[in-house]
Nucleic acid binder design. Sequence first.
DNA 1: CTTCGAAGTGCATTATACGGCTCTTTTTTA
DNA 2: TAAAAAAGAGCCGTATAATGCACTTCGAAG
Lengths: 72, 72
Amino acid sequence: MHFEELIKSIKERREELQVTQETLAELSGVGLRTLKQFESGKGNPTLLTLSKLADVLGMEVGLQVKNLSRNE
Amino acid sequence: MHFEELIKSIKERREELQVTQETLAELSGVGLRTLKQFESGKGNPTLLTLSKLADVLGMEVGLQVKNLSRNE
DNA sequence: CTTCGAAGTGCATTATACGGCTCTTTTTTA
DNA sequence: TAAAAAAGAGCCGTATAATGCACTTCGAAG
């Protein structure tokens, strides 16, 4: 599972912006408990939760084709 | 919410590969009911569910900084 | 040592995602 | 046109994500 990368992205981005978990929780509307749990590597967040956090951090969730060779 | 885009990505990719919901469900280990629900726009899948589906379709979930050129 | 801010954890509750089964609707094929 | 395949939806039990509250841990500062 590469959840860890996603989680780390969030956490690193948050720290980069010097935002505390508490502030991010408030800004995103995600519960502090949820964020803590999430950042400490426990949990399987819903897309909604992830999006809320990403949004505040100026990021976005996306899906990419891994290989390529398919033009769209 | 831009869930719709993610959902559409999955659905389009699945159709592109000419895989039925049933087959994708089996291959990914996600319940057929869940996939149906998900593709029909209802639901808030967990990262795990999304990942399972994306994986089988040769895609991956990612987080990108929205703006650009800030950092890699 | 004490205090404070930030982060992490345990417990309990509520909300909801997951999934199987069945039925209906839509789309495709003959 | 009918039949089959695929997709969508209702019911409903189970698993777990989301959340609040209180406590602990850790580091920095006093």
